[in-house]
Simulated assay, not measured.
Amino acid sequence: MAEYAVRVHWATVKVLEYIGEQCVTLAREKGTYNDITGNLRNSIGYVLVKNGSIISKNFEAKVESKVVSSANGKGILEGEALATELASRVGKGYALIVVAGMHYAHYVETLNKDVLDSAERWADEQVPRLMQRLKTQIYNTSFS
């Protein structure tokens, strides 16, 4: 049983990491806003939480700044800080938290700009399908 539980855990982690990576990629590529400093796109990332502890994350500078300023590099720190704070609120189970960590991200979306919307729509569509597929694979592996 312990071996089975470990397999289920790692399969779940891999699926949730895949979803997180896809959401980050989509949000960064589909963003319809002018990101002058690169901070908003660089603040996009995710944490994967199990029972309140972060077990995986992705916050990397992927966007070069178009201007030189003291704010450059702030995006990653803001994104990771927000995700870590949200992760601290998670209780039992798994949670995938995808964020755009700059304080003005929500404001940008109210201007009909896409910050996380395309990633959220993709996740709403794909997550149920991917999780059902995972359940089916786990069931077939354990009882065949």
Rank of each mutant, 00 (worst) to 15 (best):
Y94F: 14
Y94L: 04
A95E: 11
I97N: 10
I97Q: 07
V98D: 06
V99I: 12
V99F: 09
A100C: 11
G101C: 13
M102R: 12
M102H: 09
H103Y: 14
Y104P: 10
Y107W: 09
Y107V: 08
Y107F: 15
Y107M: 13
Y107C: 02
Y107L: 12
Y107G: 05
Y107P: 02
Y107R: 07
V108D: 01
V108Q: 05
E109Y: 03
L111P: 01
N112Y: 01
K113T: 00
K113I: 00
K113Y: 03
D114C: 01
V115D: 01
L116R: 05
D117E: 13
D117A: 12
S118H: 00
S118W: 01
A119P: 02
A119G: 07
E120T: 11
E120A: 14
R121T: 06
R121N: 11
R121S: 08
R121L: 11
W122V: 02
W122Q: 05
A123C: 10
A123E: 09
D124I: 03
D124P: 07
D124G: 06
E125Y: 11
Q126S: 14
Q126D: 14
V127A: 15
V127Y: 10
P128Y: 02
P128T: 00
R129G: 01
R129D: 03
R129C: 01
R129N: 09
